[in-house]
Design a protein around this nucleic acid. Sequence first.
DNA 1: ACCTGAACACCGTTCAAGT
DNA 2: ACCTGAACACCGTTCAAGT
Lengths: 200, 200
Amino acid sequence: MGSASTPQQAGARRRRRLSADDWARAALAAIGEGGVAAVAVEPIAARLGATKGSFYWHFRDRRALLEAALRCWEREQTEAVIDAMEAEPDLVRRLRRLFASAIEGERRDPAELTLLAAAGDPAVDAVMRRVTDRRISYMARVFEDLGLPPATARSHALIAYNAYLGYLQLAHAAPEVLPRGQAARRRYLGDLVTALLPAS
Amino acid sequence: MGSASTPQQAGARRRRRLSADDWARAALAAIGEGGVAAVAVEPIAARLGATKGSFYWHFRDRRALLEAALRCWEREQTEAVIDAMEAEPDLVRRLRRLFASAIEGERRDPAELTLLAAAGDPAVDAVMRRVTDRRISYMARVFEDLGLPPATARSHALIAYNAYLGYLQLAHAAPEVLPRGQAARRRYLGDLVTALLPAS
DNA sequence: ACCTGAACACCGTTCAAGT
DNA sequence: ACCTGAACACCGTTCAAGT
């Protein structure tokens, strides 16, 4: 790719100095495109118009970059989503929104499946544990706010999240096995969760 | 197959000549231990006491080795399990056995989670699609044999498998969130599936 | 402070040469 | 037929040297 150097002049929007956050975001984008394995220093450096050597000023090693990318994802896909939900005062509608956003997430968050996928990597596992716990706890709290006793709220949230995870996996592993069409799938997950929530 | 006379001398090293199957099994073992990324030619060659060059006599490239390992897994964990189930004539007990073996599989088949994990790799995706379809179809047939109409049988199987996948994922991503203990977990999955199978 | 460029180790792949 | 050993490319990591 590299023709004559011309170090000062850069194509596109390649700025001179990079922050650790620039690297982390580029890594997160790479995860969405090619999975955890795509977090590779050299290609990302090339993409950012820098050298590998530069990378090691900002991060200790590849793993630290992975972890930073995962923290970005955690913030955006869990904390930010939960914050957005709080804007909806009607609790039942809030739950519906939550499910809807999770389903549409199939398209909007290519990283999620990829990360579920990367189970086994210690860095990934740590984030997944936090995120899983945070999401289930949040759902349980909404169920509690709806009037369910804490233990019931918790078990409903657990079961719903269990159903969601299996659905995500199925949708990826064997999509032709699921109902076809966005609407039909939403109904499927709705039915699934409804079946799981007798008291709801 | 068909072992030719293997002229070998007992020694600290492995036998002199390796078959493609030897490589495939070593690769499957590696997957169980370190995930798909652990399917690396050089370390596996070392483990087998051969050189990398030797590997390329048996396989076109690393990916072909991965695919061979996945076929081993598919045969052992899907076809062999289904064959074993057929030995149980009582259909309800057959289903119970199926679930029990899936749960215990958490321990016995380290590859399964790792493979669910590797979603995104084309070779892995292809096998997962086949295995998913095979398992759901098999369960659907048992439900049909139990007297359910085909469409109902299919949707029950789908829902049960959905629950199973989510459970596996949860058990790995956040085990502390699930009921503790083998018995309690089996009850949890039982309840989950029962809740999902109103007509059963 | 931030970055380059060369260096080295490791793994995938090829290949000429051995048995 | 089956394997070795050297070779090369690619990526992770280090480091001395540049601005």
